[in-house]
Structure formats: structure tokens, C-alpha cells
Nucleic acid binder design. Structure first.
Length: 103
DNA sequence: AGTATGACATAGC
DNA sequence: AGCTATGCCATAC
């Protein structure tokens, strides 16, 4: 029984490039839809192996708290991966929201 | 060991 | 329809 953090990181790593997933969905796939908060915390403790930049809240807006280098870096990363950013600084969930690991 | 906080989500009004 | 309030699990100190 692995800790949830490694589990969340695993799902996060499985997110296809150019796509983003919400904490709620990660938590949902992790086994508990309420782990959304823990999922966010998992990213907090997530190593560089975890593309936390592909993880967004359900609004598609990335978090300001995970910007150790700068939020523009985050935006650039997603743009480079093929994710389109809206003028509001949010990702087009309708187009880039990851449907799920089984899809 | 217990307490406090957390990068969220959902439900209800 | 939108906004507010609350709930939930786990981690860290």
C-alpha cells in the first residue's frame, strides 16, 4: 500500500503532454474524490519528476503557489507542450483537460 | 501524539 | 444562475 503522494505523482506523470488534469480528478483516480486537497499537497512535496505544471485546479487556472521559478515559466512550459493558454492565464479545459488514464 | 494547515471540490441556498 | 459555506483526507510540525 503506497502512500498517496507517490500514487498521485504516478498519475501526474501519466498525464499526456499537452494535456492537463485537475486535482479532483487525480484524487478521484487515486481512489478518493476528497483527496483533492491532499493531491495538491502531494504536488507540493512532489519531486522534479512530477510535471506539476500539468496539474491545475478545476478552473483550469494554475496555482500561484507552485511557481518556484515564475508563473511565466509555467505558462511557457504548457505552451511548449502544446497547451493553449487563454488571456486570463487559464488553460482551455474544454480542449486540454485530460479525460482519464484509461482513455 | 496531537494539532494546524493545505497547490480543492462539492453541496446548498 | 451565481455565490457562500462547509466538508474531507492526508501530511507536516
Amino acid at each position: 500500500m503506497e502512500a498517496l503522494f507517490p500514487r498521485i505523482w504516478a498519475l501526474t506523470r501519466q498525464i499526456p503532454p499537452g494535456k492537463v488534469a485537475t486535482y479532483g480528478q487525480l484524487a478521484r483516480w487515486a481512489g478518493n474524490p476528497r483527496l483533492a486537497r491532499a493531491a495538491g499537497y502531494a504536488m507540493h512535496s512532489a519531486p522534479a519528476d512530477v510535471p506539476c505544471h500539468r496539474v491545475v485546479n478545476r478552473f483550469g487556472g494554475l496555482c500561484d503557489a507552485f511557481l518556484p521559478a515564475g508563473r511565466e515559466t509555467h505558462r511557457m512550459l504548457l505552451e511548449v507542450e502544446g497547451v493553449g493558454f487563454r488571456p486570463d492565464g487559464t488553460v482551455d479545459l474544454e480542449q486540454y483537460l485530460w479525460r482519464g488514464p484509461e482513455l
